[in-house]
């Protein structure tokens, strides 16, 4: 983060560190709150965030063509980021209460589907394709872990494919061009393909050992777009090379593994569902971000957890991790 501003502390770095400390505190608070509190207020959280998303529709701040933020004076809150955790929490609770025999009954399928579609549609119309995708993925993971049969996913997938042509016609031109550009980056090297091309150049030119701290020429000469948010991994890879990027990847794998292993010790379905789902969602955030900057998937605008600059994203992740810790600390207590 320090590096993104070419070694100027005050601009982004300070704010990032302050936020990190603040949310670390939040993380602790969340950890020490009993799991049963999170369990019982899960529905409330979900509805609350959904309410915030509706508020965004009316009072949200607009930036670069998309209405995503609520102005809370001390922080511009992005409820869609919180929804990533909110939906997982809600669905974990939902399936906690359903026996495995009932999971595949239509009545019990409709409710989660609705709970998933509402926020996704709200976010997709902001428009924010990336976040809505990540919200949906989080939800689907919980549904999958809960034991919903494969055929329903197949149906859903088929439905999605059928609706794709319709959906594409609703896409904004820039979103379409992003997908087309992903398929052929050289199609428009100075326009939409610019980000992918420059990101690949930055990562590739980092080589084995990197160009050194604060020496990433692609970044500080502004060739790299959004270097402190979505493309933070690119910057890191350019400056610290293959070893640096492998280290980051390894840390994220460790975090994921740690969450999964905590989940493994839990005895409640809620705890397990939440931890496994959150771990997987967390991993997917990382994978989508890295895949994006490495040019493996289209640019969708997904931050890298914890490292990317952005309050709401960090807040959501910290709360999510906090709940995992809470599950660990209070694992011997019942949810009641």
């Amino acid at each position: 983060m320090y590096s993104t501003d070419g070694g100027q502390f005050a601009y982004h770095t300070k704010s990032h560190i302050v936020r990190f400390l603040l949310f670390f505190l939040l993380f602790f608070i969340v950890s020490f709150v009993k799991t049963s509190f999170w369990y019982s207020s899960a529905t409330l959280f979900y509805l609350g965030i959904l309410f915030l998303l509706i508020l965004v529709k009316f009072f949200g701040l607009t930036s670069s063509g998309s209405q995503r933020w609520l102005d809370l004076y001390f922080l511009n809150l992005q409820p869609s980021e919180l929804m990533k955790i909110g939906l997982i929490l809600f669905l974990a609770k939902y399936y906690h209460n359903i026996s495995s025999g009932d999971v595949n009954k239509f009545r019990y399928l409709a409710q989660p589907l609705l709970a998933l579609l509402f926020p996704v549609i709200l976010v997709i119309t902001q428009p924010d394709l990336g976040t809505s995708f990540l919200i949906a993925v989080g939800g689907i993971i919980v549904v999958w872990l809960a034991g919903v049969k494969m055929k329903f996913f197949a149906y859903l997938g088929g439905l999605f494919l059928l609706s794709a042509p319709v959906a594409i016609s609703f896409l904004k031109p820039y979103q379409k061009s992003r997908i087309l550009t992903f398929l052929d980056p050289s199609r428009d090297p100075l326009g939409a393909g610019y980000q992918i091309t420059q990101s690949k150049i930055a990562i590739g030119s980092g080589g084995l050992l990197g160009k050194g701290f604060l020496e990433g020429s692609q970044s500080y000469l502004d060739y790299l777009p959004e270097k402190h948010t979505d493309f933070i991994f690119t910057l890191f890879s350019e400056e610290f090379g293959f070893f640096g990027s492998m280290t980051i990847l390894l840390i994220y794998i460790l975090i994921t593994w740690r969450i999964v292993s905590i989940g493994h010790t839990l005895r409640t379905s809620f705890g397990r569902l939440y931890c496994y789902s959150f771990a997987t969602a967390f991993f997917i955030y990382v994978a989508v971000n890295m895949g994006m900057v490495l040019g493996l998937i289209p640019i969708v605008g997904a931050p890298l957890p914890i490292m990317s600059y952005g309050g709401s994203s960090m807040m959501a992740i910290m709360i999510g991790l906090g709940i995992v810790m809470s599950c660990k600390i209070h694992k011997d207590q019942s949810l009641g």
Partner: peptide, 19 residues
């Protein structure tokens, strides 16, 4: 992801450095 990193940062590093 690792494969991609190897290909970009090790195998094709020279090309991207030039770029």
């Amino acid at each position: 992801v690792v494969g991609r990193l190897i290909s970009l940062q090790i195998n094709e590093s020279k090309k991207y450095k030039t770029l």
